[in-house]
Amino acid sequence: MNKVVTDIERTHFAPKDFSDRIAYMTVRFMRFFADAFFAGRYGHRAVVLETVAAVPGMVAGNIQHLKSLRRLKDDDGWIHTLLAEAENERMHLLTFINIAKPSTFERFLIIIAQGMFYNGFFLFYLLSNKTAHRIVGYLEEEAVHSYTEYLEGVDSGKYENVPAPQIAIDYWQLPQDARLREVIIAVRADEAKHRDVNHGFANTLTDG
């Protein structure tokens, strides 16, 4: 069985330049609307936001792939890391649709949000891949924060600790009697890893 990290440090990368501040303000703007719309409905929040979270890795991976082909140079492992991140976020989505059934309106919202974010992130990445990775780093900081609040709600009894979906048990190799609490812990650990990787990518691009 895979070892799931249970203690996650809620770190924050302090913006250091104009690019970082643009990335941070962009994410805070997105967070404002997420908080206003979902108002503590963390299961439904996860369904909608994970459809957005799975976009950056795929977009960045594709652009890095084309860049590697054009320059006839190795990508230093970035492509694999980014595509693996996109797949991991997609598994988060497939897990949470078994926990919080999205309404017709939320399915419509998913289409709109994904379309807007895909095109916006694509342009961000072409203009400044450093800013784009910093945006993802800040998005993942917010994800760690949100899943921590979700976990606290489960522990306090605010949200029912339902049985974990079989897809989550298989993917994270959880015990067959695993519950929602174990799923949240596993997802939060993934998000913390994506946070650190993308801030690391941004730092690498800053240093040239």
Score class of each variant (00 low, 15 high):
Ala100Tyr: 11
Leu174Gln: 02
Ala168Phe: 06
Asp196Met: 07
Leu180Ala: 08
Arg41Phe: 07
Phe108His: 06
Phe96Leu: 05
Gly40Met: 12
His65Ser: 10
Asp17Lys: 03
Ala54Asp: 03
Thr95Asp: 01
Thr6Gln: 14
Asn62Ala: 11
Gly157Ala: 06
Ala36Gln: 14
Asp35Ile: 09
Gly200Asp: 08
Tyr42Met: 04
His80Val: 04
Tyr150Trp: 15
Leu109Tyr: 11
Leu127Asp: 06
Lys158Thr: 03
Ala36Val: 09
Leu180Ser: 11
Glu160Leu: 14
Gln173Cys: 04
Asn161Tyr: 03
Met1Gly: 15
Gly57Pro: 03
Leu126Tyr: 11
Met58Phe: 12
Phe13Asp: 09
Leu82Arg: 01
Arg90His: 03
Pro56Thr: 11
Asn161Trp: 02
Asp177Met: 01
Ala202His: 08
Gln114Tyr: 09
Val154Trp: 07
Phe117Trp: 13
Thr148Asp: 15
Ser68Tyr: 07
Tyr24Ser: 03
His12Phe: 14
Phe122His: 10
Val154Thr: 06
Lys67Val: 07
His44Pro: 00
Arg181Gln: 13
Val55His: 09
Val27Gly: 04
Ala46Thr: 14
Glu89Asp: 11
Asn88Gln: 07
Thr6Asp: 11
Leu109Pro: 09
Val48Gly: 03
Glu160Asn: 08
Ala178Ser: 11
Phe32Gln: 14
Leu69Ser: 06
Met116Ile: 15
Arg31Gln: 14
Gly40Gln: 11
Met30Lys: 02
Glu182Leu: 05
Glu141Gly: 05
Arg28Ile: 00
Val47His: 08
Phe105Arg: 14
Glu182His: 05
Ala46Gln: 10
Ile167Arg: 03
Arg134Gln: 13
Leu139Lys: 09
Glu142Tyr: 13
Asn129Tyr: 05
Ile110Glu: 13
Asn119Pro: 01
Leu83Ser: 06
Asn129Ser: 12
Ala143Tyr: 04
Pro56Lys: 07
Val4His: 03
Asp7Arg: 15
Arg10Thr: 05
Asn88Arg: 01
Val136Tyr: 02
Ala192Val: 07
Glu149Ala: 14
Thr204His: 03
Phe37Leu: 13
Lys73Val: 06
Val55Ile: 15
Met58Leu: 13
Gln176His: 10
Asn203Met: 07
Phe117Ala: 09
Val47Pro: 05
Ile112His: 04
Phe13Asn: 07
Pro102Ile: 12
Asn88Pro: 01
Tyr150Gln: 07
Val154Phe: 09
Val154Arg: 10
Asn2Glu: 05
Ser156Asp: 08
Val162Met: 03
Gly40Phe: 14
Glu149Val: 10
Val144Glu: 06
Leu127His: 04
Asp74Gly: 12
Asn2Trp: 02
His80Trp: 04
Ile110Phe: 04
Gly40Asn: 08
Ala164Arg: 01
Leu127Tyr: 04
Ala53Val: 00
Pro56Arg: 07
Ile99Val: 13
Asn129Gln: 12
Asn129Cys: 05
Ala36Tyr: 15
Asn129Ile: 00
His194Asn: 08
Thr81Asn: 02
Leu151Val: 01
Ala186Ser: 12
Val183Ile: 14
Tyr159Gly: 04
Asp196Arg: 11
Phe96Gln: 01
His199Lys: 02
Ala192Pro: 02
Gly40Leu: 10
Pro163Ile: 00
Thr26Gly: 09
Glu152Ser: 13
Asn88Met: 05
His194Gln: 07
Leu174Cys: 01
Ala84Gly: 04
Lys16Gln: 14
Phe33Tyr: 13
Gln173Ile: 02
Leu72Asn: 14
